[in-house]
Design a protein around this nucleic acid. Structure first.
Lengths: 191, 191
DNA sequence: TTCCTAATAGAATATTTATTCTAGAACTTA
DNA sequence: TAAGTTCTAGAATAAATATTCTATTAGGAA
């Protein structure tokens, strides 16, 4: 066909992750400096900075959901707890992707001038996760709010204590597990 | 002496908060549009964009710590739990400031070209909070990690479920209280 | 080997955003 | 009311950043 790529998209996604950590924002110049990919090549591949960032985010989300949804939908009695623990583990096995997830707000990636198919993939991923959490809540008669906290918010908060610079220690898993249980435990009516 | 200010700093700080929510970033032009303060006036007051943002953050942190430290250092047996609950309450009573705290990373505000006194105030605030959490941990023989999670990370995670756009519901307080307890409860050696 | 296609390259350009600068307005005190 | 001082104003400038464009390069198929 034609010339094949010199760089992997994944190298670029990883660079975005480390720039997020180092500078808190991502300029194309910084990506060029970090990866060696030329600016022309970046535009050839992605079309715009916004698309590049959105693709980076989607890549991270999909990798995460692969594990998270598998755990949540596996059905065992501790499916929820195992799903909650996916977050700290993901931080250890796929650090750059975890950083992207921890640093970006998903609302950034709904701009209507992203390419059609990318927008579809993004909203697909969002809906898939939302639906899974929702039916987990329904099936167990937990409030949705409790599930969102226990499955997502608390685990994320825990790893953020360390994420940008330090490794996420094993000790965190205990806290995540217990925070999950605290979220889904049945309430008393008062306080 | 001389002419007095037309605008309150607090109006500007509030505008930064709403811009953070709406756009996720804050340009001076946007502040001008939002508040009506002129660009010249902004520079006269703050000297640089960076200083403006740092002052906004400091304003929010100090307001928060006023309540948080009072609760934490009040001494009662449930001082920790009350301190944890300061976060959701602060979100209700001082929304803009809470938003600033929830959206900014404090590492942004350590750049050496901020004015001397501002840097001192910022690091003072950081140390004050860190020290308070530390001695709370010591006094109760809790791991520091547990206290950071229970007092800060979990409460913040809970309100972030709503913060940018929606009000933080009262129902959150129960979850925050229980997550705090789950963090400081004594561990079993295994899992 | 030759041609076709897509990838790479980076200078040139456009755009956005921060910052400086000069003038003028308003408050205060004498 | 006059002088002094600080605040406001916004056009002009500078700096950072994204985007376009024209070559050039490299792999694959004929």
């Amino acid at each position: 066909m034609a010339r094949s790529s010199t760089f992997d998209d994944s190298q670029i996604f990883a660079a975005v992750g480390s720039l997020l950590v180092r500078d808190g924002n991502v300029t194309l110049q910084a990506i060029v400096a970090e990866t060696g990919v030329s600016i022309g090549s970046l535009y050839h591949r992605f079309g715009s900075r916004e698309t590049l960032l959105a693709r980076t985010w989607l890549d991270a989300v999909e990798a995460f959901q692969l594990e998270f949804l598998a755990a949540l939908e596996s059905g065992g009695s501790d499916a929820g707890k195992r799903a909650a623990l996916v977050t700290p583990r993901f931080c250890r096995t796929q650090r750059e992707r975890a950083i992207v997830l921890a640093c970006c707000r998903q609302e950034e990636f709904t701009s209507p001038d992203l390419p059609e198919d990318l927008l579809r993939s993004i909203s697909g991923a969002n809906h898939r996760a939302a639906a899974a959490i929702c039916s987990y809540a329904d099936n167990n008669a937990y409030p949705l709010e409790a599930c969102r906290l226990g499955l997502v918010a608390f685990p994320l908060a825990a790893v953020r204590l360390y994420l940008p610079d330090q490794p996420v220690p094993e000790s965190i898993d205990q806290y995540v597990g217990r925070a999950f249980l605290s979220a889904i435990q049945k309430r008393h009516s008062g306080i």
